[in-house]
Design a binder for these strands. Structure first.
Lengths: 385, 385
DNA sequence: GACTCGCGGAGAAACGGTTCTCCGGCCCTT
DNA sequence: AAGGGCCGGAGAACCGTTTCTCCGCGAGTC
């Protein structure tokens, strides 16, 4: 076997150390050419099954593992997808901070894996340190800001980019987002029907799509129904600021009798604030917040939440991206190019294809006055609506 | 510039399409050799600053980005670290399921990034689909089971492996874990001091290190103090099973007056179960659970939690791994080999170096009878022991 | 004036696969 | 018997860097 290494046309170096077997070693051991080994192992070429299986067996015996680097260099495909986390605020890394990201990332990872790709988690900032060193087949970008230099650079490099969150002004290949406007309007209507007269909003100071669209939808709704907007903003990445803002909202002279909180911890914070002001939920204050956490099923009272269905988003984003990478028409009507990877596409005409995904409102006790959940001890009498 | 591409000794192909500039293009444009370009850009060789900056400038102008694949092939280093999630149960992917993993993964990602590496999230199963296609410099494995074939294979391939969780019988380069025994004993003592007479345990059915060591520590403590063990087990990956098990524990004839729950949701579940049985916390039942979630600061009553400090773990694991990759002696007393990467190490003598990290008990109202937190409605009468 | 020394840089061999091209036989046909 | 087609496979270029080796040349040295 060590002799085989020498037969294979290499410089007869010092007995090959402890290095792993290469394709040449397999070829020599099997008595065939490296072409044949490559073809046999990759199911290509025209070879009789006998040769194929023999080569495979020899490769197995030698513990041969093809070099991913060499393959990537030659084929131009690494099987790697970037997952870019654009951070709220200056925190180095906010993923898994909100349950939304965590769930989304998990779904994206699974989706990628099931199609043979792996996900690399990367920060949106600092392109040159790490970005430049990794061969990426494509990238998922979470909520890119307007004119994101990262996205532009990737686009110039010919790397397909799919964004989670409708991009402001970025040349992405495709994007996926929730229908935030419909979601907010649905919640406001829901609260109105439950008897709310003045609905407040707890929102963020950042300019990401989610915050912006949601707030705009709220303001538009207020104008339409003739309600004066009642809202407080705070930097969403600061947990402490959320509690303060919730307090502020309920301390206002024009105190709302219903509140929708855009961020995950808002429910808890608003509940605590309500307690401090002696307001009962849902009797004095109707509450809804956007969250993926199921702790709100167990709070006292349980809080109605809006789920953005991050798993669906993550799965969709990744599949769209891989479609683009592999040159598959993803059925959104835009021809991605069947033969050439996207980097060869000419400047795309029109806006990139976007997909809006529905949200889900999980109605619990905090947003309805007619079905008061009885709580602790006495068993709940059946038949209540 | 397109002319430059032709000068560079390439086959005069069809005008180079839209492809990115290569190092040859930069060399031609700058009027130097590719060696000089490589040296100039990487800060190597002996070149006058003038040449260096000129080459850098030309590279910048051409938008040159070195091919990560080619560099990886040549240098044998990809800058990629695997983060392997061994799943509880059969779920495809449990990371971010528990806050511990999410936090740990986040810290690991940050730590890797700050040293110029990126993390690739990979499943512990299905080696050949994805694993083989990625050039990994090393891998972090979370809680590998005994005789993990994945770890063995990686070891044979010469890829350094550092595990989070003391490995049962795996050839890892190093490992990091909490001192679970000390943590459990500390909690049991804490509960005893608070007046507990019979401490129960809510634990898991899986055989991972955490569950095993914690349970063993509990049983050992029971034997030492002469208490009959009172515990229930359930598959930790099943959220519904946890609530059932909590219920079961409190429904036992030998009902405990204090419980430690090993998993994140146990606190909530135990609290709910206690309510159902009319037990007051902490008056009738002392409660501690292991969790990274801060919701337990806001429950009614707030619940004492044990934090495993996952960030510290994640950071340490990654730094240990990168030290091994780069051949740095990590100061744990074992010489990793200064010149050669770990793959050239001879069979290590003795067990791999391990690091035990302390945990943190965050004491809240649920585990102490003497300092009742004043809460919402009726202030609890003080003075109860 | 010949020699050494170090500076600045060029040449070319890897790295380890993939894949395009081509080729020798063997069998079948006419 | 000659030609054509196909089967099974070999050769070699190529992917784009890094890096080892070597070389010319000007300046200082004796």
């Amino acid at each position: 076997m060590t002799a085989a290494a020498n037969q294979s046309g290499r410089r007869p170096t010092t007995s090959r150390r402890l290095e792993r077997a290469g394709i040449r070693d397999v070829a020599a051991a099997a008595g065939v050419s490296i072409t044949t080994v490559s073809d046999a192992l990759n199911g290509k070429g025209r070879l009789p099954d006998e040769t194929r299986s023999r080569v495979r067996e020899v490769a197995e015996r030698l513990g041969y593992r093809p070099s991913a680097a060499a393959r990537t260099l030659r084929t131009g495909r690494s099987g790697l997808i970037g997952l870019t986390v654009t951070t709220y605020g200056e925190e180095p890394f906010t993923f898994t901070e909100f349950a939304y990201f965590a769930e989304m990332a998990r779904a994206a990872t699974s989706a990628a894996l099931s199609r043979g790709y792996a996900l690399v988690v990367l920060p949106a900032s600092s392109r040159h340190d790490v970005w430049g060193n990794i061969a990426l087949d494509g990238t998922v970008v979470i909520d890119p800001p307007d004119q994101d230099p990262l996205v532009s650079e990737l686009y110039r490099s010919g790397v397909p980019v799919v964004s989670d969150g409708k991009p402001g002004n970025c040349p992405v290949t495709a994007w996926v987002d929730n229908d935030h406007e419909a979601a907010v309007l649905g919640i406001l209507d829901h609260l109105s029907e439950a008897g709310a007269r003045r609905i407040g909003l707890l929102t963020g100071t950042s300019t990401d799509t989610y915050t912006r669209l949601s707030t705009e939808a709220y303001l538009g709704w207020c104008e339409r129904v003739g309600q004066e907007p009642v809202y407080e903003t705070y930097p969403a990445h600061d947990p402490a600021a959320g509690a303060v803002a919730a307090d502020r909202l309920l301390a206002r002279p024009d105190r709302p009798d219903a509140v929708y909180g855009l961020f995950d911890p808002n429910g808890t914070d608003l509940l605590a604030a309500a307690r401090r002001y002696g307001m009962r939920v849902p009797d004095d204050l109707l509450l809804v917040c956007c969250s993926e956490s199921d702790v709100y099923a167990g709070t006292e009272p349980p809080i109605t939440t809006l789920s953005l269905k991050p798993r669906r988003i993550g799965t969709t984003v990744v599949n769209l991206l891989i479609d683009a990478i592999e040159g598959v028409d993803s059925g959104t009507g835009v021809d991605v190019g069947r033969l050439f990877p996207p980097r060869f596409r000419t400047a795309s005409a029109g806006p990139p294809p976007g997909t809006l995904m529905p949200t889900e409102l999980i109605v619990r006790a905090s947003s309805q006055r007619r079905s008061p959940r009885t709580t602790v001890s006495p068993p709940r009498p059946p038949g209540e609506v």
